[in-house]
Simulated scan of single mutants.
Amino acid sequence: MLISAIRRIAGWMEAACLGIAALCLLYMVFVVGFNVLARIVFDATDTAVNFMIPGAIEQVSYLLGIVALAALAASLNGGMIAVDLLVGRFPPLLKALVARLWFFGILAFAIVLVWLFWHETVATYGRGEETQDLRIPMFLIYGFYTLECLALAVIALREALTADGHHAELS
């Protein structure tokens, strides 16, 4: 019962992480592509026409963190990629134990990240920090990072409880 609930929640979190990563990547490509074209117009008109998106570098840099954490969480689906001559030769039970050990390690890492990002969220909220160009409250960004790390923890927990040591690339 508990494992099925964890599987269901982890599945939702995985889908959300994939959706968020896809939207952020599309927006990043748009911002970078648009600014490249706008820069050409800007240079061709001797700075008379400026269509560049304000704070584009700042937007892309924070979105890159969101994409990286979302991709990390979503990448755990179906096990980790394992290119290992030693583990590939283990019996199935030992493969499963090794896989579960790695996922428990990732779970511990994700919990530490959740804790650190949560404290940074609270601290930046208390200090009222904002981004340099767009004046976005920093606690929102760190809060989003915290949620993504929480998704990583739940997905890693699901894999740690259900991993069978099977890796598609070893078949």
Rank of each mutant, 00 (worst) to 15 (best):
A168M: 10
D133A: 11
I20F: 04
A151L: 00
H166L: 10
W12T: 09
G33R: 09
Y142K: 13
T45F: 00
Y125K: 13
S4E: 09
A163F: 03
T146L: 03
V154E: 02
A16N: 04
D164V: 05
R7I: 07
L2V: 14
V154P: 08
R39Q: 10
E120T: 10
A163T: 01
T124G: 02
D164E: 12
G143D: 05
V60R: 00
Q59T: 08
R158D: 09
A70T: 00
L94H: 07
I3S: 15
A160E: 11
C17G: 01
M28P: 03
L76F: 08
M28D: 00
A82P: 06
A15N: 08
Q132L: 15
S75G: 14
N35H: 02
V41G: 08
R7K: 14
C24G: 05
V41T: 13
G105Q: 01
D43Q: 14
K95T: 03
L140Q: 10
L63Y: 08
V67Q: 00
Y145L: 15
L64K: 08
F139A: 01
L140Y: 12
I6G: 05
Y62E: 02
R7Y: 13
A160R: 05
L97F: 10
E169Q: 12
V41S: 08
A160T: 09
S4M: 15
G165F: 02
P92S: 03
V29L: 13
F90C: 05
F104M: 09
H166I: 10
L134Y: 04
G105P: 05
G165T: 01
I3H: 09
A44Q: 06
R7P: 03
G79P: 03
Q132F: 13
F144G: 12
V83G: 09
A44C: 05
L85C: 10
C149D: 10
A22S: 08
V31W: 00
N77H: 13
L25C: 08
G55C: 01
E58R: 01
F144C: 11
R7W: 02
P91V: 13
I6R: 03
G11R: 04
L69H: 08
G105Y: 01
I106A: 08
R135P: 04
A163K: 03
V122R: 09
L157E: 06
L93R: 13
W102C: 08
